[in-house]
């Protein structure tokens, strides 16, 4: 036999569901009829709430304690406490991260801007300020390099190409006659001791003053000596430079 209070709970549930369905009808189509149906639905929900309240009241009268009426056990309290603590810790952690993020964002901008002009001033000697030349999609193709007096002295650029292991990112500079003024490796993952020598001055110095015609490896009648045992890496740097300079020439 179903307990008396339970009947009220079931009634409340049923009334609530029917009421919600009636309101849903109004959501689908707005008209006089559906509005009346919604009104009826609201009435049913109110009945349901009353039935629920009465159920709780009957429950309370039978057990005589509010805790038991709502089925609050020690385990439930403990579980709620656990959830609350976990939530609290996560909120504190999120706040700490937000603060750190805000604090480092500014420095990150300074650092990356500093890194950029530091890199570019190494590849275009004498240049102190750089102005990005954008393409249609607002991405920098290359940078115009100006000296202290504000004269255009050359162009600086980034170029990326697939190396032996991963993408190599280089920064290069050319003067107004498209002669290479310098090259430096921004990022690479070449084999240490072999391909990684592209990052060393001995290799990079060869590029200085080279024209676009001479910008090939020696085996292709160019002026750049490949690193022993690292032809692919050497070729990649040369190609990255050539591609970008040709792109700037066309522009």
């Amino acid at each position: 036999m179903v307990e008396k209070e339970l009947k009220f709970y079931y009634a409340a549930l049923l009334l609530g569901i029917i009421g919600a369905l009636c309101i849903l009808v109004f959501m689908v189509g707005h008209s006089m009829t559906t509005m009346m149906v919604m009104g009826f639905g609201m009435f049913l929900i109110m009945l349901g709430v009353l039935s629920l309240l009465y159920g709780i009241y009957a429950d309370y009268k039978r057990t005589g304690s509010l805790r038991e009426t709502f089925g609050v056990t020690d385990e439930l309290i403990e579980a709620i406490g656990t959830i609350a603590k976990l939530t609290l810790i996560v909120i504190v952690a999120a706040a700490a991260l937000a603060v750190t993020y805000e604090a480092t964002q500014e420095q990150l901008k300074i650092t990356s801007a500093g890194v950029e002009s530091e890199i570019f001033s190494r590849v275009v000697s004498g240049a102190t300020s750089f102005k990005a030349v954008m393409d249609e999609s607002e991405e920098a193709i290359y940078y115009e390099a100006y000296d202290d007096a504000g004269n255009l002295v050359g162009y600086a650029f980034y170029s990326e190409i697939m190396g032996c292991q991963d993408v190599i990112k280089i920064a290069g500079g050319i003067d107004l006659d498209y002669r290479v003024t310098g090259v430096t490796i921004v990022r690479h993952l070449e084999t240490p001791g072999l391909g990684a020598k592209i990052a060393e001055p001995e290799f990079q110095e060869q590029f200085r003053g080279v024209t676009i015609e001479e910008l090939r490896l020696t085996k292709d009648d160019g002026k750049i000596d490949a690193i022993t045992g690292a032809t692919i890496s050497s070729q990649a740097v040369v190609d990255a430079m050539r591609n970008k300079i040709e792109e700037i020439q066309r522009d």
Binding site: K85, L86, I89, V90, L97, T104, Q107, L108
Partner: peptide
């Protein structure tokens, strides 16, 4: 829930270190 809490605490510190290193020691 001690393990989730450990992970959250550790993860927070790691992310802080990560962000600080990225900003100050590229």
């Amino acid at each position: 829930v001690r393990l989730p809490i450990f992970i959250v605490v550790i993860g927070t510190f790691v992310t802080i270190v990560d962000m600080v290193i990225e900003a100050y020691l590229p």
